[in-house]
Amino acid sequence: MGKYTNLAKDIVTNVGGKENIVSLKHCITRLRFKLKDESIANDDILNNMDGVVTVMKAGGQYQVVIGNHVTQVFDEVNQVLGITDTTDSDNSEENVEKQGIFNAFIDVISGIFQPILVALSAAGVIKGFNTLFISLHWYSQTSGTYNVLNAIGDSMFTFLPILLGLTAAKKFNLNQYVGLIIGASLCYPAIQLDTLSKAGKPLYTLFSGTLFQSEVYQSFLRIPLISMNYTSTVIPVILICYFASKVEKSLNKVIPDMVKFFFVPIITLLVSLTLGFLVIGPLATFGSNLVGSAILAVRNFSPLVAGALVAGFWQVLVVFGYSYLLQ
């Protein structure tokens, strides 16, 4: 019997029993249950239980706040439930309808970002210390010490699409290695606008004089390939992985089992990344630019209104990388 076995048993009992639990995951301090019926959970008992800080309900989840030792309790709860695969894979249309669109969206985003939060925080702290030490003149920005620490801290953000490709694939029930390749492809140097602009002049420019002005340096099968910078981005890789999951699911239904192993990932990557580079990526980037421009427009029109909006959507703005606009 483990240290938290009794606590785990009591938690399972008071959230309505094993039969009431649809799925379970955890973040840094909380057990995040998805229950069939939250009304039968014993909130009062859980709130007063030794080992439980409090109970919260948000984003379609029943959250039991444990503390920093949540991973140990999580493992014990899974032992009680008899669960060996803790992946939260309940993304059916029926479940989305039960949650509501907004709660389903929050659930998807939290499911994608939660696994990398610890690494993301660690990288941010390392970058912060590196900047601090430069300001204190402990070493110069051209030193090897700076470069090593900057590589450790900055790599997480530069290659963020690779990590999100993995977690998004897991969330959307896509082959996780396909998700990794999608993320890595978006970070490939020869695709980035900065790399292409340094290498030569554009062939021509699309949408000149508009917010969507785009330089075209290369084409794919004679189709203009709008160049973007995808390193450090969030939205393109999530959307492409979602699309890839639908492609993979459709292919698994029609391709014979004998050749599925080879042909499903090949076709999934070719279809999803081709459309990703040609359509999904540019549209996602244009959408991001529109949101950024709207934020700046509101701030220029009324800082008071902008402050209210920012306060209400701060977490979303940070997740999608818009907080820099407010500096």
Results as ranks from 00 to 15, higher is better:
Y4E: 07
A8L: 09
K9P: 04
K25G: 05
R32V: 08
E38M: 08
S39F: 08
N42K: 13
N48S: 14
K57W: 04
G59F: 10
Q63Y: 11
Q63H: 09
V64Y: 02
G67C: 11
H69S: 11
V70Y: 10
I83T: 12
S92T: 15
E93N: 13
Q99R: 14
F105A: 10
F105R: 06
S110T: 15
A123N: 03
V125C: 10
I126G: 05
F129Y: 12
F129V: 14
L132P: 04
H137M: 12
W138M: 14
D154M: 12
F159P: 00
L163N: 02
F172T: 03
N173V: 04
G179Q: 02
G183A: 05
P189I: 06
G209S: 15
G209E: 11
T210L: 14
Y230N: 03
T233G: 05
V234F: 11
V234N: 02
I240A: 00
S245V: 03
V247L: 05
E248C: 05
K253R: 12
P265T: 09
L273W: 01
L273G: 00
G281R: 03
G281K: 05
A284T: 07
N289L: 12
I295S: 03
N300Q: 15
N300P: 02
V310A: 01
Y322T: 00
L325Y: 09
L326G: 00
